[in-house]
Design a protein around this nucleic acid. Structure first.
Lengths: 258, 258
DNA sequence: CACGTTACTTTATGCTGTAAGGAGTTGCAA
DNA sequence: TTGCAACTCCTTACAGCATAAAGTAACGTG
């Protein structure tokens, strides 16, 4: 199910997000052996490697040689930890795109990087983007893409939907690619096996499939490319991504000239 | 976190999905007081009303006056129940679209209906579309949209990415709208309050925001429309949806003539 | 050296999905 | 008619989850 970021206690969450360069006040008591950053990093490592389902407070604690409860000294709750994960990961997205070759080249490069980012951090796609985290990482990404999009010369109200569509297309197609991988691993069944088994059962259970759904049949299924051993769904997702942003950018060009 | 459909035992799941018109064999033992359909319907009601987080086997059982374990007589596990929910809900999507006014009008109407469907059943967006359920409902929806898209005259390999982009755009924008609502309810904070609180804290924590992120500032935030009291994010999502599919369909037209 | 503050642990609570086993009901065969 | 197998449904139990509450140990400052 979807995880909502931005659900924890607002003030605590936000001050953790924007804690950049806060002078560590001298305090009594034992020295903290951990740090928020260490915890967030550990959580990201777990989520990257084993998926969101494996991300428990116990797991993060264990990875740092602590109990789950030890984390609560640093982080108010799991919700805030998720916020911090999201924003910290976003910080690694590139910020500088050369606009010398035009906005379209830069926008395409950005979309590529964002796609790669989601493949590196699949769990990002499982976190709702409706309630933004409003951390420095997220702002930086927005700033980056907006600098490119404003180079089109379009007014803000147009930029907004371009932004929305761009993220929808990248997230949507990346999700297919990512979940194809995740699902394969979670169920210990490769994509090929899965499809093979399922289509066999389908012809058993609904032998009239081709007549009932002629268009689906006409579209055809996986035709493996002997030269490309990327799993089918992932390749399909990739093609959708490329074609999708092309069409979007064509639309932007039309809006500019029209 | 994302829920994977299609993860349960393949054979059992598929035969439940395609059980249409299976003759109920005479069996010994007490008459079943429930049915798979009743269970699936109850689960959908719960998910519609209270969200995926509230959908537990105990909750479904309770709604039917049974214990959680009673459900396991009808359904092998929660994973299969999710498959059945997905496919059954999809069955309510309209199937007949008039192609008399051209593919574009029909495709737009379909996109509208799909958007409305996701707003009616927000939990659908929380289920991965990477591993399709392969049930009759899903096939019917695919058949419906493909009948429209094949009316463009484009070859299958082009239809595929149009299909993918269409679903990405609809799902992506619907997700924003839907999660804006969900998050508001889950946190007992209205969208306006949430934004107000957050932006207040932002100016406290990062007073140089406007200088650091000039483009974000330039894009502007929520400008409430005095005539339209739809929440901001939902309105924004709606605009993205409309503009997104327009651009997509423009691209399709270009592909046809070009 | 005592005391307050802080880091961290243990224990406990109420959720979750579901395995295991038992009770009760029904239809068919002997 | 009786016995039995098949079936529905229940209770109990378990592991794993987030996290509240309370306790212990370490540390800096008075």
């Amino acid at each position: 199910m979807v995880v909502f970021a931005g659900q924890g206690d607002a003030r605590r969450s936000m001050s953790l997000l924007w804690r950049e360069g806060v002078s560590p006040q001298v305090k009594s008591g034992p020295k903290p052996a951990l740090s928020v950053d260490e915890i967030v990093d550990a959580a990201i490592v777990i989520a990257d490697a084993d998926g969101m389902a494996a991300l428990s407070m116990r797991a993060v604690g264990e990875r740092l040689g602590r109990t789950a409860m030890a984390l609560y000294t640093y982080v108010p709750s799991k919700a805030e930890l998720l916020d911090l994960m999201v924003d910290r990961a976003l910080a690694e997205v590139a910020r500088e795109y050369d606009l010398g070759a035009g906005w379209r080249a830069a926008a395409t490069a950005f979309a590529e990087d964002l796609w790669a980012f989601y493949l590196r951090h699949p769990w990002q796609l499982q976190i709702s983007s409706a309630r933004p985290v409003l951390g420095p990482g997220e702002f930086a990404v927005q700033e980056t893409v907006l600098r490119i999009l404003f180079a089109t010369g379009l007014p803000p109200h147009r930029i907004r939907w371009v932004l929305g569509s761009l993220f929808s297309l990248v997230r949507g197609s990346a999700q297919i690619a990512v979940e194809a991988r995740l699902a394969a691993r979670e169920s210990d069944v490769s994509e090929e096996e899965w499809w093979y088994t399922r289509s066999g059962m389908l012809t058993d259970l609904a032998p009239d499939l081709a007549e009932r759904f002629p268009m689906v049949t006409k579209l055809g299924g996986m035709e493996p490319d002997p030269d490309d051993h990327t799993p089918y769904l992932e390749r399909e997702a990739r093609l959708t991504f490329e074609a999708g942003i092309q069409v979007l950018f064509d639309g932007v060009e039309a809006a500019i000239t029209g």
